[in-house]
Amino acid sequence: MKFKASYLAAAVLTFNLAGPAFAQTIKIGNIVATAGPLKGVAEPAVVAADIALAEINAAGGINGKKVEFVRFETGSDPKQASVGARKLAQDDGVLAILGPFSSGESAVAFNDAERLKVLMMPNSASTPGLTDGKTYGWRLSEDEEKQFGRLLRSIKAKGVKANTAEIIYISEEVVSNSAGTKLYPKLLDENGIKHGAPIAVQYKSFDMSAQAAQILQSKPDLVAIAALPDSASKVIKELRRQGYKGRIIGSQIFSDPNVVKLFGPEGEGTIMVAGFWRGFNARAQAFNDKFVAEAKKRGIEKAGAHHSDAQTYDTLFLMKQVMEKAGVTGDPAKLEQERAAIVAGMKGVKFSGILGDNICFAGNDAELPGYIIEIKDGQWTKFDEAPADKCN
């Protein structure tokens, strides 16, 4: 009997050593939008996240443990982003959350992150002031106001005719609406560019002839479009069809390399601003090439990585850096303690990746460089660049 008892004790010990406490992963939540209006711009970010995850795990994970994504699909619905934040934090016990994708989703989900005390970093949310007053909401993205201001200063400095402008925006999309009704008018005024009242179009509109005709009446030097790529393409093609010859400009909202093909010949001369340039360094170029190839395998045609894809990639590596310094273990018994250590580690952090070197944070927002992009000779080309602002 003594032999049997000892054997049983040894068997139990062996089981425990191989059990959950020693086999657990580092769980990171990932709120995604692969359906709905955001699908076109948000689905590729999943590719970028998977590339980063694979690279991190191939290099040993975080503190010797593999990293696991626990995903939640929002369907582009801000209410579902809130549901996702609660599920990931309460039911799945993730240490931090990558996503949601957009400003509209983040504005809602950030409230859950604050209440549940878990770090949340969106992929692409760029509405000014989104993280104001937040402890757990952080962004490795540059806000629209700063980037569009850089674009306007650049085109004036380089002699692009820019005395007058008209604004057109998508009314239902949160960032587009905010940019078109508030941000663009403010920055055009600050740069001495006269403009008319912003003109609204609906996301599902197919006929934009009336809005284009209204714009052409004033013969503006610039047309500033606040819209996602598909909607921007419809506006641009209608403007050119009606004979508009001036420059078309936009902020980060539609600055995806895919717009070169999407806009077609009508997009020639369009100027926009982005937070990522593939030629920034060797690692940035390598990511861009790997991203294009991996996206193609999944049936997603990409001419290059969008800045939201690069931000997704770098955000996961930033989380890795902070988690390693905080010494996280993924032990469920230490969940609250380790979540707090991660957020504490964000304060004063500096990070180098494919977006920039020695990136710092002003408040909870990263200071990133800006790249002014022009569609020239049918190519995605760098027109100008602005260095990242310094952090206080």
Rank of each mutant, 00 (worst) to 15 (best):
S233L: 00
F254E: 03
R278T: 07
A274C: 09
R241H: 12
G269F: 05
E268V: 11
E266H: 12
V273I: 07
P220F: 03
P265C: 08
G243D: 11
R278G: 10
T270V: 12
R240K: 15
D230P: 13
Q242W: 08
Q242A: 08
S218E: 14
F280K: 05
N258G: 09
P257M: 13
F276M: 05
A224Q: 07
K234E: 12
G275M: 05
A232C: 10
D221A: 13
N281M: 15
Y244R: 04
L222N: 06
A232Q: 11
L222S: 02
G275L: 05
Q217D: 07
V235E: 01
G246R: 00
G264N: 07
Q252K: 13
I271N: 04
G279A: 14
L262F: 05
R283P: 02
E266P: 02
V273Q: 02
I236S: 02
A226N: 07
W277D: 13
I225A: 01
V235L: 10
F263E: 06
E268L: 13
Q217N: 13
I248N: 01
F263K: 13
I271V: 09
V273G: 01
L222C: 07
D221T: 14
A232L: 06
E266W: 07
V273D: 06
R241C: 06
P257C: 13
S233Q: 11
A274Y: 03
G269D: 11
V235C: 02
R240H: 10
R283M: 13
I225P: 01
F263N: 07
G267P: 05
F280G: 00
G279I: 14
V260M: 06
F280I: 12
D230G: 15
Q242F: 06
I249E: 00
F276K: 06
Q217P: 03
Y244L: 06
V235G: 00
